[in-house]
Design a binder for these strands. Structure first.
Lengths: 338, 338
DNA sequence: TATCCTTAAGGGTAACTTTTTTCATAATTA
DNA sequence: TAATTATGAAAAAAGTTACCCTTAAGGATA
């Protein structure tokens, strides 16, 4: 059975379309008698106003488009949760798309959003496109007066609202923490070295070293891609020097580093302390449980959604950048303070 | 700058809207001269046809709506991947929504989809709504000639295409496996006891017991909700009898059971063997790594999407139910065969 | 009584944007 | 002159709502 429209109902009763519309919307202009008949029929036929037509008419879709680079990353899942919560509270639906770290996919999605399908866009840049730092599709969207809020992976070359994590501060904080529990040589394993996030965390690491007068040694930094063999790179690292602390720049890599280190006979945390980023499920259940930096993903999502909805309602305000602080979740992969 | 429309361009050149439309679509009816001018202007102003208008015109959105109960479950993430892949290959976008196991949220989403926003729906039922087994909103969708494919958590009371996992077979298979490696008392920990999936897996378990002449003991079955204290329930279980094998009905519960069992001083797999469902990241990185049932989530997603797209193109075919077999991934949480 | 006003109950049309089909005008050709 | 071609305008269609219009009846006023 095809979807029933106002037209169909109008034909059935031999009245005009506008009469049916008014009857269904309970207008005082229609007699009670006719109203009840039409409403009953509409209910029976499961009439539902066509959203496309309404959106076109109202020039508003009550929908927010979201682009995240990677759904296997717990942080982004948390952010998504926060966005959904706030969006739903405000009567917005969300369309979520995964860019899968691909610039091309991202562009495709943005073009879809730019064609009138959403009232606003929330996005975290794919590593690839953050690397290239060309954001034509994104700028098009902003240019067409569709509000955009970037979170986490942002670009200075895009003028819009932003919600960022204080990644430099976090990198600084955990490096200091490792130094304070007695780590001399601290390595960094970075699978997102070309994203702003990865860079800032490393910068914080360097800042802490400097503060303690420890020289920076590039050989302690492992930048890797999916293709690289972590086990091999780690073996080089562990043979190079005695390492007392390792920072994993995201959750999965921290867990994998833990695996490799354990497999090579080191004791965690007695020989080597490990700290990772993102407080997800993985780090909680591995043995020993990992000390992690929590970025409060859900809170970030909420803030992002609030910022966007506020901008949809009040265009013209100056752009804002909110910085969300991180917290350190100390568990069993770091030595206790001496 | 507001989005530019055909009307705006027409006004700028003092020609009609249809002329602009034809010029942009490179029609032979428009002189080369004018065509080039209009095309250049359209490009400059980043003209993009309004999708809402097109969708309304064509009565097709090239969009698929997806509803999953829980995005923290790796299985659903995998399925989503598979759906996205096939959908994109066929030129479809997807809108994914999380029902969060809530019947109300599910209904809200379905009503959104039922209002002309999508060409088809893919869904796995929320535990709550599978429990109540009332599917008004879903039936409305089907009744309005919008094709639906259910996967994993399905209902016999809804007539549509389906893709299911052979959960009974899987429950049977792993129970037999545990019996064969010497487990006498096998417990089941089930956090989704009211979903079809949870029930079928338990049924498979019972079938295996029966085959080996082992009496079914209800005290070995723990059905729990989020509110329940796993640690407490496990302590009752472990004090009740000597348990040699435990089946965790999903990945997270299997990992949590492992934690509790280890914390209580048991050796896995020497004292107790553990098998879980869903091959995600968690089970891979815990110690010992867990033996799991893989449901081939990505493949299920691909099949589901193919089925839906096929139905969109060919309505009227008889409904189909595809069953996907599982595989057992043996790792370190189960004793080796004696 | 004639005129005006009000009210009830609907009808009609514009608007949102796009494409397609049909129609009109001018210029060109036979 | 008649027929053809090129070029573009006009209208219809998709589904909905908001706004204005129409008709008839009844009451009020002078």
């Amino acid at each position: 059975m095809k979807k029933v429209t106002l037209k169909d109902i109008a034909a059935h009763f031999g009245v005009s379309i506008s009469t049916v519309s008014k009857a269904i919307n309970d207008s005082y202009e229609i007699s009670n008698d006719l109203k009840l008949k039409i409403q009953a029929y509409a209910k029976e036929k499961h009439y539902k106003p066509n959203r496309l037509a309404l959106n076109l008419l109202n020039k508003s879709t009550k929908t927010i488009g979201v682009v995240v680079p990677n759904i296997l990353n717990y942080f982004f899942v948390q952010v998504l949760y926060g966005i959904e919560k706030v969006a739903n509270e405000s009567g917005y639906n969300i369309i979520s798309c995964i860019s899968n770290e691909s610039s091309a996919k991202e562009t495709k999605t943005l073009e879809f959003f730019d064609a009138g399908t959403v009232d606003g866009v929330i996005m975290s840049l794919a590593e690839e496109s953050q690397n290239e730092d060309k954001h034509e599709a994104l700028l098009d969207v902003i240019n067409n007066d569709i509000p955009v809020v970037l979170f986490d992976r942002v670009s200075d070359n895009v003028q819009c609202d932003k919600v960022v994590v204080d990644d430099l501060e976090a990198g600084y904080k955990i490096t200091k923490y490792l130094i304070n529990i007695g780590c001399k040589n601290i390595a960094v394993v970075n699978p997102i070295s070309s994203s702003s996030v990865g860079k800032l965390r490393l910068l914080g690491y360097k800042k802490a070293l400097e503060e303690f007068g420890i020289p920076f040694d590039p050989k302690l930094i492992i930048n890797l891609t999916i293709k690289d063999d972590l086990d091999l790179l780690m073996s080089f690292l562990l043979n190079y020097k005695t390492i007392e602390g390792i920072i994993g720049i995201d959750e999965l890599i921290a867990v994998q580093v833990l695996q490799v280190v354990k497999a090579r006979g080191y004791n965690v945390p007695n020989d080597i302390s490990i700290i990772g980023f993102t407080n997800g499920q993985l780090s909680k259940y591995v043995t020993p449980s990992l000390t992690m930096v929590s970025q409060h993903g859900k809170y970030i999502g909420e803030q992002t959604a609030r910022l966007l909805i506020n901008r949809i309602k009040n265009p013209g305000l100056p752009y804002e950048t909110k910085t969300v602080k991180t917290s350190l979740l100390v568990r069993d992969s770091t030595k206790k303070v001496e």
